[in-house]
Design a protein around this nucleic acid. Sequence first.
DNA 1: TTACTATATAATAATTTACTTATATGTACA
DNA 2: TGTACATATAAGTAAATTATTATATAGTAA
Lengths: 114, 114
Amino acid sequence: MLQTTIEMDKAAMILKLLGDKTRLTMVKILDNHDCCVCEFVEIFKTSQPSISQHLRKLRDVGLVREERRGQWIFYSINKTSDYYAFMQQILQQLPDQDHKLKELEENGTRITCC
Amino acid sequence: MLQTTIEMDKAAMILKLLGDKTRLTMVKILDNHDCCVCEFVEIFKTSQPSISQHLRKLRDVGLVREERRGQWIFYSINKTSDYYAFMQQILQQLPDQDHKLKELEENGTRITCC
DNA sequence: TTACTATATAATAATTTACTTATATGTACA
DNA sequence: TGTACATATAAGTAAATTATTATATAGTAA
């Protein structure tokens, strides 16, 4: 079976992007659920601009997509990305992060939009 | 089959380390061959301190080991690292870098030690 | 309209990273 | 010994990254 590969430059760039705990957790969560920005703000207990900037980096290289739904903007994994398979191999090795969303629901802090 | 996972912090740290083209290429090469520092200096056409500093970062987290052989210090992949399996999944997806060593041999610039 | 909510962007400041230059350490060999 | 070679470390600097604060944009609803 032929193993698909990715150029070294591209690989290093993707790894650097994922080499940040916030962004890595974001894509791990997005791998199971679309999320809007406000959820990430709650989950990471950090400022909205900071979240937006992380999401922008992921979007700029095409790892995630954004989609407006009314007032909110939802992010999702871009399964057509050239780097999707590469990223998946990494995400598969990470522990599930669904508990982070569950906590929001239980606290009632999960925003009405979602 | 149970999928082994790695903590998010640790994963992000390893990805950040590998998210540098020089270090990523280093570990990809080391995955097939032990190398001494002088080879890397030739391959990457950069200064010896710069190479030493990259190797130190890889060594500090235990991804590679160093071993003195006479005048030279050889680096190798540390297969007993907690992060070995995680890294392997990534390295498998990268194109072979053996041509870099071959070029050294052909140019006669591959150092006598190696 | 106006006010409010969600998000993005810009500008700045703080931190981190990577490279350079200089120096130290350790081995080999005359 | 002393000198040369291989490598590591330290210190300084430049560049890149991240977070913060302030502001802009876009939708929604009164």
